[in-house]
Design a binder for these strands. Sequence first.
DNA 1: GTTATCTTACTCGGATATAACCTGTCCGAGTTCGATCGG
DNA 2: CCGATCGAACTCGGACAGGTTATATCCGAGTAAGATAAC
Lengths: 169, 169
Amino acid sequence: MRMNQGVEWGLHCCVALGWIGQNEVVSTARLAAKFDLPAAYLNKSLQALARAGVLVSSAGPRGGFRLARAPSKITLLEVVDAIEGPEAAFRCTEIRRTGDGASPASECKKPCAIASAMRQAELAWRKELSSQTIASVMMNAPQAAAERAVQWFEATRAVASNTAAAAAT
Amino acid sequence: MRMNQGVEWGLHCCVALGWIGQNEVVSTARLAAKFDLPAAYLNKSLQALARAGVLVSSAGPRGGFRLARAPSKITLLEVVDAIEGPEAAFRCTEIRRTGDGASPASECKKPCAIASAMRQAELAWRKELSSQTIASVMMNAPQAAAERAVQWFEATRAVASNTAAAAAT
DNA sequence: GTTATCTTACTCGGATATAACCTGTCCGAGTTCGATCGG
DNA sequence: CCGATCGAACTCGGACAGGTTATATCCGAGTAAGATAAC
């Protein structure tokens, strides 16, 4: 059982977007440079977050992604579900109905006891994830990291402007 | 995030072994026939459970697997860990330390806030799994299924004896 | 000076290769049961 | 009749391919900003 790498990337990006401000737009390329990640693949995860309504995407020059809501209104569960997809980790294949000792359909009206137990555990996991938000993660991170993110954002924005200015000369 | 199929198989086998009695030994082939599963691959999962001390294996004719302890002393977490392996679903790759906005080592003495949040959720999942046992699953399953398992066990044992007797003629 | 138009470069978005892991299979070492032979 | 020995078949255990999913990459459609030219 191995979670997609994109979950970690998406969470870090959401936290970074929260630090630099909800209304600020950042392109995939800049976020990829910040964490030294493959930009094209990171874009895939950010697209999934945009489809799920966690991020908002804008095209064209100065485009990119921004948070769709306040960081306190975005739960970790939303991010995980957006990237991992909706299906549960444990999938019951109803093997109780197959083979020599198969149970008749009349005994299978209630869900399989094993599937119920596994589902209960997964619900506890989801509940814990839904109680944490991007804002709560921001609170638990070092203050210096937040300041560093803002500085990085300003610096790379300046670079972008300078690049444009340099190209104009 | 997708859990190994072997977890479902292992849990069903443990429950079946609990129903037919802690001291009864059943071979992989018989268990595979009961659920219509590929015997050789099921064996792989049962081996993992034996290594983890959940099952006890015995070789030779009339050999196979049996529960190592009472069903009430085997938690679902043990079964899941034995087959899935020890590593967590979410693995922090410390991307906060890489890229342009990398945090210095002095800020990374505490674990990453994102990794902590994900770990907390995973601990809730594990806690729920450790509170459930093979015995509790047996309680929640239909009584008819338990009786059917015992009948199946007796029947296949008889078949095995008959087969041996038939081969002797 | 203002406004409308056009060009341009940048962005997202989805379609396309590659790699790792899970699934499935096979054969060999070891062991135990049963038959056999001798006492 | 009883016991030890031998043979044989059955079991687990780990080593070996195939399929599916996650990872990584590329290129095209669309768009907004900025420059340009006309008024």
